[in-house]
């Protein structure tokens, strides 16, 4: 959604290079995707060091699995995003199992430190494109009815199943399923306008 065709084609070309073992293509793909993927990992994990480890895992996975990418299933950008989300969810579940309690001050310190050392290698054009894309998505999501938005964000960012969302909001399961479907359909429609 929101990705222009030329960008998607460029992403596919970079990924094809990665599948051939081209490290330069991999470096370019890193520059293109690392910002959005890191933002997602940091938002979901709330811990900069862990988000960096997750990002490293994701890029290693991209390197190893580039050849298995299927253009019929998703764009490169979405493939990488959903892969990141999946790795982050694995980490969140493992975190629960480890009984590790991270103090909020440590999280904040780590986040601030990471921001202080933020990468400067990304080009201004890339940043502008990405921001424009993000602004478009934010605008589409903000126009969704509140209950649809709530359901899809709880599912996407908080790793809650539709059963858990229904229980948390005190709503029938069918209602939550319909809200998720309608919300995603509206996002899809706005992407194609």
């Amino acid at each position: 959604m929101g990705l222009d065709i030329s960008q998607d084609a460029a992403d596919r070309e970079m990924l094809a290079g990665v599948a051939r073992g081209d490290q330069r293509a991999f470096s370019q793909l890193y520059d293109r995707l690392s910002g959005p993927l890191y933002s997602l990992a940091l938002r979901m994990l709330g811990d900069a060091a862990e988000a960096q480890d997750a990002l490293q895992d994701v890029f290693l996975q991209l390197w190893r699995r580039a050849a298995s990418y299927d253009v019929d299933q998703s764009s490169v950008f979405s493939w990488a995003m959903l892969m990141t989300r999946s790795r982050v969810i694995d980490r969140l579940r493992a975190r629960g199992r480890r009984l590790r309690v991270v103090s909020s001050s440590t999280d904040d310190d780590a986040t601030e430190a990471a921001m202080a050392h933020a990468s400067t290698i990304e080009s201004a054009a890339d940043t502008a494109d990405r921001n424009e894309e993000a602004v478009r998505v934010r605008s589409s999501v903000s126009k969704l009815p509140a209950e649809q938005r709530e359901a899809i964000e709880m599912a996407f960012f908080n790793d809650l199943t539709h059963h858990e969302i229904a229980a948390a909001l005190g709503q029938p399961l069918g209602t939550i399923k319909a809200r998720i479907r309608r919300g995603l359909l509206k996002l899809r429609e706005r992407a194609t306008i």
């Binding site: 910002g35 890191y38 934010r138």
Partner: peptide
């Protein structure tokens, strides 16, 4: 595609160099 786009709701952050 619509699901993956939701990820862009996360506040933009750059990873350390």
């Amino acid at each position: 595609e619509a699901s993956a786009a939701l990820a862009q709701m996360a506040p933009p952050q750059a990873p350390p160099a």
